[in-house]
Design a protein around this nucleic acid. Structure first.
Lengths: 249, 249
DNA sequence: AAACTGTATACTGTAGGCAGTCGACAACAG
DNA sequence: CTGTTGTCGACTGCCTACAGTATACAGTTT
């Protein structure tokens, strides 16, 4: 059954399917949170976001609920959405979970990966190092995320990869400012990790990844210890009324 | 500062706070999925669910998005919601993740738990055994879930507990029919696990939990192997039009 | 007879609107 | 002056309505 000539003419550019509005809004708000335009604890009024983004309240509502599902905002019935304010304890717990998930990923990756996978790992690793040399922090951080994501993908466990991805995004938010501290060491550990994966040494791969994630964890805790204290008061949960300023800057 | 007499008159019946409608709808649909009224792959039309539950489409939409976030339904833009149809591979991966999370929970619980926690564990364990003696499968399964939830709680890592809880709920859905197979063994393993936790033996606790979850995993795979094949065709993703029957039974 | 095209139908995605509720502030009583 | 109560404002939660779009069916053409 020769369906049609068009079907075989591959290279379908996949017409720029306008994704649903709620997804665009989701990305937009997430960006505002990650880059700090919206500060933790801040109240998010649907109407204001809607006006700011030029859409109606409905897509904003749905986006906020998606964000709530991934832990970016807290939804208090009747009160609306508040940017999630992570406590030091919670950040630490999240880092612990990330360590667990990534360690297992590395172990499985060592068991399952093939030459092609290793090649991809090396490529990303090289890219990260180049970014580091060039003092391009953003590119370095991005490459770091990409490398970890790739490892979880190579684990062959999609569920694990999905979970690790979510956890990683939040971790990155919490400790982005810390990232610039440890660059060189981090990429050397990555290199050793790839070696272990290539050698199919699951024990060593897991070990290196555990140490690696523990390093970033302790580095995060040091950073926090150096700071004065919790920036936001924990009890009143930041109920300030009328923030009125969503100025994106 | 004596606030008021009322504040101290404990035993507040906590007026039946009407939770938001979307949460009730969420629970209702989840129940329909878990008990099989809605079969995997089935298309869920918002209007029908809305009419069935006596609410408007809006809360249904929001509930469906919550369900999508936890992996119960798949949301295809422009096409609506479909009950998630887990593949054998995915179920296996989920069981692997559960094993990972619960093993770590058991390890941490062994490190952190106190006498009170152990006492609660023993209480639940005893309850589960009684249910088993009485051939009360439902109560036994419930106690099982409760026990595992309690262990994750005792781990002291709330993030880990939250993740484990979500994963467990889905696992339970997948292998509920399998549960009745291994009852006696399961509760004996639980008993040993509690002993290890009480003895602060993190290594052994983790070991027992890993074996325990691996047992249920292999038992699941055996069950699936005994069955003919995948009940639903994977490719067309179940696009059947007009199911029209949401008959709850 | 087979395939293509036009039309009808039904569902989703989004917008707008209304009632209920919560918090804050001000007036009032003790 | 302190504690209480009434009123106002604002926001959320939900419902209804409309437009856009994908699917199925039937009619038409080759």
């Amino acid at each position: 059954m020769v369906r049609s000539e068009l079907a075989n003419s591959g290279a379908a550019p996949k017409i720029p399917r306008p994704t649903t509005l709620r997804e665009s809004v989701f990305e937009a708000i997430l960006e505002l949170i990650v880059n700090g335009s919206l500060s933790p604890g801040q109240h998010l009024a649907e109407s204001e976001l809607a006006e700011l983004l030029g859409v109606s309240r409905q897509p904003v509502r749905e986006a906020l609920q998606m964000l709530s599902g991934e832990g970016w905002v807290d939804l208090r019935p009747g009160h609306g959405a508040f940017v999630h304010a992570p406590t030091v304890q919670e950040a630490d717990q999240l880092l612990a979970v990330r360590a667990l998930l990534e360690t297992e990923s590395a172990r499985l990756a060592a068991l399952n990966s093939d030459a092609a996978g290793v090649a991809r790992l090396r490529e990303v690793c090289a890219r990260g190092l180049r970014a580091l040399e060039a003092d391009d922090i953003d590119a370095s951080v991005a490459a770091n995320s990409e490398l970890h994501a790739l490892i979880t993908e190579l684990s062959g466990n999609a569920v694990l990869a999905e979970l690790a991805s979510q956890v990683s995004r939040r971790v990155r938010w919490y400790h982005t400012p810390v990232a610039r501290q440890r660059g060189r060491d981090s990429w050397e550990e990555h290199d050793q990790l790839i070696n272990a994966i290539e050698a199919r040494d699951e024990i060593r791969a897991a070990e290196i990844m555990r140490d690696h994630t523990e390093h970033t964890r302790s580095s995060y805790l040091e950073q926090r210890a150096a700071e004065p204290a919790e920036p936001q008061e924990p009890a009143p949960a930041a109920r300030r009324r009328r923030p009125r300023s969503l100025s994106a800057s």
